[in-house]
Design a protein around this nucleic acid. Sequence first.
DNA 1: TATTGGATCGCC
DNA 2: GCGATCCAATAG
Length: 195
Amino acid sequence: MRKSSPLPREFYAQDTLEVARSLIGKLLVHRIENLILSGFIVEAEAYVGPDDRASHASRGLTRRTAPMFGPPGFAYVYLIYGMYYCFNVVTEKEGYPAAVLIRSLEPHQGIIEMREKRKVTSIKELTNGPGKLCQALGITKDMNGRDLCSSDLWIEEGREPGKIGQGIRIGVHYAREWKDKPWRFFETGSEYLSR
DNA sequence: TATTGGATCGCC
DNA sequence: GCGATCCAATAG
């Protein structure tokens, strides 16, 4: 069995679209003491630069968006609609605001515990959405700004993904001409994609 | 200090 | 299709 290790910071330092595409098939892991909760990434979206109106960073550097302007390989976690968290990985060089939103996972380790956290039994409903996967893996505001290269939350090599599809991002109708950018990547045919 | 609205979800 | 629920970002 190969020793698991976090992807290096250079992985995150690349072009954001490249990172988003490359993340499909990788394994997102959260270790809570002796418990391992993980899932293969099957869907991710890129939020790129200061002009992308769909991105929080288009409003500039604020308290909330600070992690997006920071160095690559760190987590950007925020509360949405007052009740769910969304998990992103910060990309590109420090000072350039960009990140990839992890939208859905194929559950791997800790499925019993994920069911308890999610209050649902169907495996397909555990992590098929950005808010759901944070709930399943126990990702909260506490992980905002966490270093994915040296903490209990990380991404490692997973499995070879199937065919990768590309399309427009979800839930960004307000983003004017940026709403139609095909910056969402997903594993075609996966049963674990978000709605 | 007050108002607004959202990178969602689950139920009607 | 719609309400829940709260905080950051703005406006005043």
